[in-house]
Nucleic acid binder design. Sequence first.
DNA 1: CTTATAGTGGACCGATCGGTCCATCACCGG
DNA 2: CCGGTGATGGACCGATCGGTCCACTATAAG
Lengths: 196, 196
Amino acid sequence: MPRPRQFDEERVLSSVQAAFWDNGYAGTSLEDLLVASGLGKGSLYGAFGDKQSLFLRVLREYDEANDRMLRTWLEQADRAVDVIRGFVIGPLRDPGGAEARRGCLRANTAMELSAGAPEVAAEARRSYAATTTLLAEAVRRAQREGDVAPRVDPDEAAHAVLAGQLGLLVLDRVGQDPAALSTMAETLLHGLLPRP
Amino acid sequence: MPRPRQFDEERVLSSVQAAFWDNGYAGTSLEDLLVASGLGKGSLYGAFGDKQSLFLRVLREYDEANDRMLRTWLEQADRAVDVIRGFVIGPLRDPGGAEARRGCLRANTAMELSAGAPEVAAEARRSYAATTTLLAEAVRRAQREGDVAPRVDPDEAAHAVLAGQLGLLVLDRVGQDPAALSTMAETLLHGLLPRP
DNA sequence: CTTATAGTGGACCGATCGGTCCATCACCGG
DNA sequence: CCGGTGATGGACCGATCGGTCCACTATAAG
């Protein structure tokens, strides 16, 4: 009987995610969210609750999408080591494109909000753990495929690769030269995942 | 002839730094700064200008202090490799202490503000470059002291160590288990600075 | 067509934001 | 002892914050 929604929930979440991604949590006002989504306050609040709830939902979907992407990427790749390399280098590409220098929504907001928002910190921990698990699987497979030395501990290497990638994201965000970032990525990969 | 200042500038800057460190830039209000410093608005503005100027000054002093600390640490240490290890592990210590989980003011605010405040991004780049130079010197010395394999490229290793440390700071901020962080630090150090 | 229901969007709210202004104060040279 | 100068801190400002409320609308069931 009621009036149906006039907006596409996916599109709204996508535009809201872009707003948070570009400007951070505190840097994105309600007004920004309304403009980005094209909705009125009543609609946005009725559908998603307050700003924090909306943000948490967007963040969780971002993490899930990343997880899915990495998982299918691993399924389709010929060599697991290529996926690991892509994981480290991927976020740094496209230096002049539309998505340039936005870094990673997860890392950006984890740094911004972890001190004051335990739920965001917990979500970040959960998500990083999932990523590490996938990376460890990838390292094991890369060892089977002969691309990584067998003496490497897959779990330790996965954790270290994650840390290295996060560091590159920080340096990317402050505008570090992309060529230097690529070199760092290669140094990290060679050091942490030596060939047999 | 005029009335002299009634506050100690160093103490004020120190307490203001603590406030920004705990709560980030946007998360620290003028009111917070007044409470932390014990000053009135007129005094704070008269002495340091607006919020952004004050923050930039605090950030620059933080970076300089860190640079000085690392430099003297290197001068006094018996082995450069110990200083590098300390650089990576140091910020993670003291998990239950008063300074727990504040991470690094430079990294925190670089992530928070780089997108919208070019001056902060530039300061972060400048500071990271200085740190990398010191680290590269340390790697060269560690090679001379026989603690790091000569085949390692000091500049590349320094960049990669910096990236790894930054990643650990991110994971530390979201509340990652300190034991896991220590293991990651060791993995990074062993991988990037192999013994001869 | 009527009616119940949820969607819509803007008016409106108090709180707080960063920042300005100024009456008052304390000091020091004369 | 006085006069002038900068320090002081709180009153005050407009803007904007996140959030609530409500008159109105569009819809589908009866």
